[in-house]
């Protein structure tokens, strides 16, 4: 994501000046979505920037980890930004928005409280769209080696000779 942080060499101020807020966490402009603080930006190909923003929010609402930055959720869902995948995603986001509107909100992204967005998702959790996004995130999010340290997980140890001399039995609080 770092390579895309500064879109076409735009400064943070320029990027924000060319975009509009969607929901509380994102801004969108022509062909891109970015964090509201402009810490990252993603150019979209097949999906509308608004749908990509909703998809990122959806990923965070399904598996909310406050210590995981948006970038890792973006990596997990940007696989859907293809000509083949986009129509089903756009339809799924439209269905999410329809449920949100039925509850008096302008859209899913325009539902400010996580609690209320989760209630919308509970209503949709058996839908193939929700299940497919959730299922994809299980590997798309948690199999990113970059998030492992945020959980304390150390991954493979063979290259360092295992833990025999590196703390396999170092628990000291029992």
């Amino acid at each position: 994501m770092n390579s895309q942080t500064s879109r076409e060499g735009l400064t943070r101020r320029q990027l924000l000046s060319r975009s509009a807020a969607v929901g509380a966490s994102f801004v969108v402009g022509a062909g891109f979505v970015a964090g509201a603080d402009a810490a990252w930006a993603l150019e979209t190909q097949a999906l509308s920037p608004e749908s990509m923003a909703a998809l990122i929010q959806l990923a965070r609402d399904i598996y909310p980890h406050d210590r995981i930055p948006d970038e890792n959720y973006v990596i997990a869902v940007k696989v859907y930004d293809t000509a083949d995948a986009a129509p089903a995603i756009e339809a799924g986001i439209a269905a999410l928005d329809a449920v949100a509107q039925g509850r008096g909100y302008p859209s899913y992204l325009g539902t400010p409280w996580e609690r209320d967005r989760v209630a919308i998702l509970r209503e949709m959790e058996l839908s193939p769209f929700f299940q497919s996004i959730r299922g994809g995130l299980v590997t798309g999010l948690y199999n990113q080696k970059a998030v492992w340290p945020l959980f304390g997980y150390e991954g493979e140890s063979y290259s360092e000779g295992g833990y025999l001399h590196r703390g396999f039995d170092d628990i000291n609080w029992l």
């Binding site: 598996y63 980890h65 959790e125 948690y142 959980f151 997980y153």
Partner: peptide, 27 residues
């Protein structure tokens, strides 16, 4: 289980903070 398999097997189909707060305590 490692973190990736814990995410897949702790509560298959589970989501939301009840699920993720468990994984947050993985260590």
């Amino acid at each position: 289980l490692g973190l990736p398999f814990m995410a897949a097997f702790l509560d298959p189909g589970g989501w939301g903070r009840e699920f993720t707060s468990a994984l947050d305590s993985y260590e």
